[in-house]
Design a protein around this nucleic acid. Sequence first.
DNA 1: AGATCGGATCGAAGAACTTCGATGCGTTGT
DNA 2: ACAACGCATCGAAGTTCTTCGATCCGATCT
Lengths: 121, 121
Amino acid sequence: MTTTALELAPAAPASGTCCAPLVREAADPAAAADLARSFKALGDPTRVRLLSIVAAHDGGEACVCELTEPIGLSQPTVSHHLKILVDAGLLTREQRGKWAYYSVVPGSLDRLGALLSEAAG
Amino acid sequence: MTTTALELAPAAPASGTCCAPLVREAADPAAAADLARSFKALGDPTRVRLLSIVAAHDGGEACVCELTEPIGLSQPTVSHHLKILVDAGLLTREQRGKWAYYSVVPGSLDRLGALLSEAAG
DNA sequence: AGATCGGATCGAAGAACTTCGATGCGTTGT
DNA sequence: ACAACGCATCGAAGTTCTTCGATCCGATCT
């Protein structure tokens, strides 16, 4: 490590321009909005808990009746949050007889994590 | 792959209990709230773009004056979003003379991705 | 068929968020 | 010392989100 690059690294010491230029493309607004939509679904403690409880069940699925009690919220509220997680592509819903079973979409969380590293790596 | 486990997999065919038991602990409410706080910071398209633009700059840092224009929002609004990202531990702020430089906290996004896989893996 | 149960949908009330213009504070330049 | 600049903070207005009780729809049981 020599001090060769020191002449251009600190840019302007006093006045003039303040920042360094871009070295690569930033995420375009559409991609950013997509990413934000997914993260917004995880931006509520209730929904994180729902996701975790579903994943903790045998077979990776659980019905609403098993989710309402540990969450401690009303049944309509739990259904509302589950719908948001389904719309975000993190859960799937399957009606079997009288009960509705929710399960984690395989790989959906890993895909999100990968996008995370890519967006700011 | 034999059909050995089929006897206990479908649980109750008609009435009775609906769901399978838990096979492991779900995330406790405090941990879920922590995780949700981080994701909520990423749950806005403006903040995802800010993070991306900062990371795209040389040296991984940028000042507010370089962020306001590409975002297309007012300077107070950009400052507000930057503060949220700092509070979430995703950005750091450093005042150098007249300008405030924001940079991505190294590893913060990877850590989030790891928690993601852990919480529902 | 009628009753019952699981769960989604429908407003509504309250809280939280996003955005802005105006203003204040610290640094830089004249 | 004074003016100019970068940026944070302060209300305020409008929107969105969270939560609930009430209600409705399907499936199951008697």
